[in-house]
Simulated assay, not measured.
Amino acid sequence: MAHRLALAGPAAGMAAMVTAYFLLPLDRLGPRRPVLSWILLGLALALVAGLLLRQVLCVLLGRRDTRPGLVIPLLMCLSVLVFASAYQALAQRPGELDGIRTRLDALYFTMVTLATIGYGDITPHGQAARLVTVLQILYTLVFLTAAATALSRHLSHAVRHHADPDRNRPNQHHRARDFRRVSGRDDVGAPVPGRCLRFPARQCRGVRGTGLAAPHAVPQHGPGPRRPPRASARGRAAATGRSRAERATRPPPAER
């Protein structure tokens, strides 16, 4: 049920945006207000690009406080509709775009340019129309491609997590085992014989992924301190000579 709702959200959002594209009075833009039209086009594309980059970074960093599966499809659909509105506004000027008569024609030409098919039935002849076409191609290569890659990565990770939800979750047995290795005590609190082999005493400040706070020093229940290093042959000979000299000069014990 949750997956159906996750798919219904982007579908409903895209349907609402397409409906608004066909119903909004976009005919007031174009040749009548060229400066306002270019400003709105630049602001809309910059806003969509910034939001897309934010979602791509969230996917790359693995942040879970965002919903790229919902936001990225809506932003991609919005960018397509922005370019379709620009083509519809440019088609009102004679000699700019041949073949665009309705808003559906503008949306069709946007999708054809996005897919790099190029049927040739609609061609940009004016300089402004060619500029917007080049801008759409670059926008697709940079932003929409990165967004589609991030979306596919997010969906693949979600599918793997759904197939194996306990894959990245630490097991309770592993948590108890790591606690015994670090603290030197079992679950009851009794000392566990043996040394902390996996986690040295200088690095035992916690176990990653277990949520356990280990002590700064690990109690060693194994053998005692190490023996001092053995002296060299010359040192042993000197010590033997000194002991013999001491015995020779030592006075004899008093007789009873």
Rank of each mutant, 00 (worst) to 15 (best):
P68Y: 07
V192D: 05
P68C: 06
R4H: 15
F22K: 05
A115H: 09
R227E: 09
L23C: 07
R93D: 06
H173D: 11
R167K: 12
G13E: 05
R177I: 02
L57Q: 07
P124N: 06
V218Y: 04
R175D: 05
M1Y: 10
A237G: 04
P94Q: 02
L212N: 01
G235W: 15
N168L: 15
R250Q: 08
Y139Q: 00
L5T: 08
I117D: 14
P253K: 05
A6I: 09
N171A: 15
R130I: 02
A84V: 03
V80C: 10
L60S: 09
L47Y: 12
S183P: 02
T240N: 14
H3Q: 12
D166C: 07
A254H: 15
R236E: 04
G62Y: 09
G209F: 09
I137D: 12
L61M: 14
P228C: 05
R230M: 09
N168K: 11
L24V: 10
H162Y: 09
T19R: 15
L155I: 06
H3A: 11
P215Q: 04
R177Q: 03
A158N: 11
H161F: 11
Q55H: 14
Q220A: 15
M17V: 06
I137W: 12
L114C: 10
L26H: 04
V134D: 13
L81N: 00
F199S: 04
R236M: 06
L78V: 04
V188N: 13
D27L: 11
V159L: 14
L57Y: 11
D121W: 07
A91P: 02
R160W: 09
L212V: 01
G120E: 06
I122L: 02
L41C: 02
I122W: 00
R33L: 13
D105K: 12
R63M: 09
A214S: 04
N171W: 13
S232R: 13
F22R: 06
L144S: 03
W38T: 13
Y119V: 13
D65G: 07
L212Q: 01
Q127A: 14
L41V: 02
